[in-house]
Design a protein around this nucleic acid. Structure first.
Length: 567
RNA sequence: UCGGGUGUCGUCCAAUGGUAGGACAGCAGACUCUGGAUCUGCCUAUCGAGGUUCGAAUCCUUGCACCCGAGCCA
């Protein structure tokens, strides 16, 4: 999808499915689903699951449903339901008319529960939550049977009906599956399958005051939808025997569950609980803060669906837990943006340059290419005049040997314009350089010297009189540590929040072609990085988010301290 | 301690008894009107110990490490 003829992804899940298809299971039918709980925004980890489930369905000529596992009304909201649909669609996937909710099955699930009671496989328990926990035992000691475990079927039926009718208070009684309190799998020790909960559900409103537990809803929902391959994360491995038990007791269609390791990404956190915490405590501006690993945050940051999909393909799928370097995500992004983002000149931290020998009042329109990777994107005109701005960091009065940008006496090229040479500097009271005086060589118009002489570097620039102002937000990793959750000595993950994860630069100057750029559009600011127009932009005041920097050799040299002063 | 899982370059993923390979990162170089892009080269790995085999990442035994599990969360 989008990417050139890569070899089709191959992993243990596809191998299993392919084996099932060859063996004629389900008549070769493949049907998956993406089953989020609408209790938060989707993140890049969900993208992995989305690409897996929708991707597999596509490859095997099957279908993939979108189903909301909305069994806990206390935590779920329509805001989340809506954002999730938007995000899945934005990623490029389509569930057609197969949008489902576990809550669609509340009636059916209730019937299933009654069936279990009738079979003597479920009972109403009057024990409190604390008592149930106590009776459950521990991993090394078996649990004990509840004193209510052997209630007659009729009594259970009556009690369960009265639970449903609202006769009992929240938490006063639960329905439990009757399995084995001595099982070494804690999930099989008579798990609670229905609880009394007076909360308004985002879809069923006040229709129910009992709700099925996830464990009682998930497997059966898959079964109801005819899901052939129920792909989920590792922590549900221990639940599989329980799902199988329900399916077998109920005698209904049996999906095959396959577990894989969830995605961990360096320099960020991925749990919805922690992301919610960052939002609530104001460490970020919201779920879609461009620093967040959420789909909406990445979108606002300027990521493309193609880059995210390519990333999900490259990280692979396996059962071992791992942490992917965020550099891979950024690589996929640059790879995609390099091909499609129009180039443009923008000066983030301007320093004024006066071309002494350039006629006052004259303006030239110079031709610049929009994307050297794609000639079809054409060219544009950029105005040049006597007073310009270049980047502060592109000038050094007393440069080290490896700095080959502008300095006194040195000639460099202004991209698509002229060679200029710095002849003098103007300083303020504090001794800081505030203005450069240069001369230009009229013979180098367009950027090439007819006499064949070369310059070491090419700088981006804008014309003072023609440039437009903008604000730019420079983003960096949200956390300074690759694994913010992994330090046992730290109080918690927030200890590693990166104080420099966002820097706002306000007096940036852009070339005039950017006037009226629409929110969401992406550009490469030459030599700086990829930037995306933020929705905070106003008509006369553009706001850009830095999506990602370009790979930067000079920054690397500075960082590793490899340059030698004056060689 | 009990049950379930997992151990391969710095990182992620392959190799399913037959030359341990790819990607990212890193390093070095070529090229370049973006210190970008592109291209070339280099670098480093099978958790340990035994065993089976002509041959083991793969099979067996054993040890170790890590992850998950005692919600009326999902």
């Amino acid at each position: 999808m989008g990417m050139p003829d890569n070899t089709p992804p191959s992993d243990f899940i596809r191998a299993i499915i392919s084996g099932d298809v060859k063996a004629g299971k389900n008549h070769g039918r493949v049907h998956t689903r993406f089953p989020p709980e609408p209790n938060g925004y989707l993140h890049i980890g969900h993208a992995k699951s989305i690409c897996l489930n929708f991707g597999i369905a596509g490859e095997f000529g099957g279908l993939c449903n979108l189903r909301f596992d909305d069994t806990n009304p206390a935590k779920e909201e329509v805001e989340y339901v809506e954002s999730i649909q938007e995000d899945v669609r934005w990623l490029g996937f389509d569930w057609d008319d197969r949008l489902y909710y576990a809550s669609d099955y509340f009636g059916k699930l209730h019937e299933y529960a009654v069936q279990l009671i009738r079979k003597g496989k479920a009972y109403v328990d009057d024990l409190s939550a604390d008592q149930i926990r106590e009776y459950r035992g521990t991993p090394t000691e078996p649990g004990r049977n509840s004193p209510f475990r052997d209630r007659p079927v009729e009594e259970n039926l009556d009690l369960f009906e009265r639970m449903r009718a609202g006769e009992f208070g929240d938490g006063s009684r639960v329905l439990r599956a009757k399995i084995d309190m001595a099982s070494q799998n804690l999930n099989m020790r008579d798990p609670v399958i229905y609880r009394v909960l007076r909360a308004s559900h985002h879809r069923t409103g006040g229709q129910w005051c009992i709700y099925p537990m996830y464990d009682f809803a998930h497997g059966q929902s898959d079964s109801i939808e005819g899901i052939t391959h129920s792909i989920c994360t590792l922590e549900f491995e221990d639940h599989r025997p329980l799902y199988n038990w329900f399916i077998e007791q109920l005698g209904i269609f049996h999906p095959r569950q396959i577990e894989f390791a969830r995605l961990n990404l360096s320099h960020t956190v991925m749990s919805k609980r922690k992301l919610l915490q960052l939002v609530r405590e104001g460490h970020v501006s919201g779920w879609d803060d461009p620093r967040m690993p959420t789909i909406s945050g990445l979108r606002r940051r300027g990521y493309t669906p193609e880059a995210i999909r390519s990333f999900c393909e490259r990280i692979g799928v396996a059962k071992r837990e791992s942490m992917v370097d965020i550099a891979l995500l950024e690589h996929c992004l640059r790879e995609d943006l390099n091909k499609r983002a129009p180039r443009v000149m923008a000066v983030l931290r301007p320093i004024r340059v006066v071309i002494d020998n350039y006629p006052e009042g004259e303006v030239e329109e110079l031709e610049a290419v929009n994307n050297p990777e794609d000639p079809a994107m054409g060219t544009r005109k950029v105005p040049f005049s006597r007073v310009l701005y270049i980047e502060q960091e592109d000038f050094m009065e007393d440069p080290p040997k490896q700095f080959y940008r502008l300095c006194p006496g040195r000639e460099v090229r202004l991209r698509y314009a002229y060679f200029i040479k710095c002849v003098s500097v103007v300083k303020n009271q504090a001794g800081e350089v505030v203005e450069l005086h240069c001369t230009y060589d009229p013979a180098t118009r367009g950027g090439d010297a007819p006499d064949g002489r070369k310059v070491k570097s090419t700088l981006h620039w804008v014309s003072d009189a023609h440039s437009i102002q903008a604000q730019v937000r420079l983003y960096d990793h949200l956390f300074t540590k690759a694994d913010p959750e992994g330090d046992k000595d730290a109080p918690d993950f927030k200890a590693f929040l990166n104080p420099k994860s966002m820097e706002t630069v306000t007096s940036c100057r852009l070339e005039p072609s950017l006037a009226g750029a629409i929110p969401g559009s992406r550009y490469q600011f030459e030599r700086l990085g990829y930037f995306c127009v933020d929705r905070d932009s106003a008509q006369d005041r553009l706001v850009f988010n830095r999506t990602v920097t370009l790979r930067d050799e000079w920054a690397r040299i500075q960082k590793t301290g490899k340059e030698k002063k004056h060689g």
